[in-house]
Computed example of a mutant assay.
Amino acid sequence: MKNKKILVCDDDQGILDVLEIMLEMQEFTAITEIDSTKVITRICENKPDLILLDLWMPLLSGEQILRSIRSIEEIKDTPVIVFSASVEGDDIAFEAGADSFIAKPFDMNEIVSKINLLLDKSSQRKTLAEL
């Protein structure tokens, strides 16, 4: 799974910094975005292999962003992990089309495990589609 691109969107610079360091330690390429209004453009430009998305952000929520991702043909199949401190966050995330959910505060090992699991599933789907 080395060299896979992971795009992270959160309105908290501290969380972005920690996730960027953690992802790069796992040999992923981390792309971070703090401005929720720019994330769809960044996704279309960078074509990440997976997206980590905060649910509650100002201007555009993670739910709104996720619904947009799922409606754009070129990026609709990109795996998305939503994270949130909200009690109802998992229900909202899955209803909007998330592939996985992680509660804040999160465990780094859990994030890496879920990323690897979803990337494995995604590459298997692509392989099957090519047959």
Rank of each mutant, 00 (worst) to 15 (best):
C44I: 15
T32L: 07
M25N: 14
S36V: 05
I31L: 05
I21V: 15
I43K: 00
T29N: 05
D17R: 14
V39N: 00
C44E: 15
T32G: 05
D35G: 08
S36L: 04
I21A: 13
F28Q: 02
D11R: 08
M22T: 12
A30N: 05
E27S: 13
E20P: 03
A30T: 09
F28W: 03
E24K: 14
L16Y: 07
R42G: 02
D35W: 04
F28N: 01
L16A: 12
I43N: 00
M25H: 14
A30E: 04
I15R: 02
I34L: 09
E27L: 12
I40G: 00
L19D: 04
M25S: 13
R42H: 07
D17S: 14
T32D: 04
F28R: 01
D17K: 13
K38A: 06
L19A: 06
I21C: 11
T29G: 03
K38R: 10
E27I: 13
E20W: 05
C44Q: 12
E27K: 15
M22C: 10
I15K: 02
K38P: 01
L19N: 05
E33C: 07
D12F: 10
E24N: 14
M22H: 08
E24R: 12
I15F: 07
D11K: 08
T41F: 05
V39R: 00
D12K: 11
D12R: 09
E27Q: 14
E33W: 03
Q13A: 13
D12G: 08
I31F: 05
M22G: 07
D17M: 15
L19P: 01
I21W: 12
L19S: 02
D35V: 12
I15C: 07
I21K: 11
E20F: 06
I40Q: 00
E20T: 13
I40F: 00
T29K: 09
I21H: 10
G14S: 12
L23A: 05
T37L: 08
D17A: 15
I40N: 00
T37R: 08
L16I: 11
K38H: 09
Q26M: 11
T29P: 01
I31E: 02
I15E: 07
E33H: 05
D12S: 14
R42N: 08
I34F: 06
E33I: 09
L23W: 02
T37Q: 09
V18H: 05
E20K: 11
I31S: 04
D35R: 10
V39S: 01
L19W: 03
D12P: 05
C44A: 11
V39G: 00
S36E: 03
M25G: 10
A30D: 04
G14P: 06
I43T: 05
I31G: 02
D35Q: 10
K38D: 03
E33P: 01
D11I: 10
Q13D: 11
D17I: 15
M22I: 15
L19H: 04
L23G: 02
R42E: 06
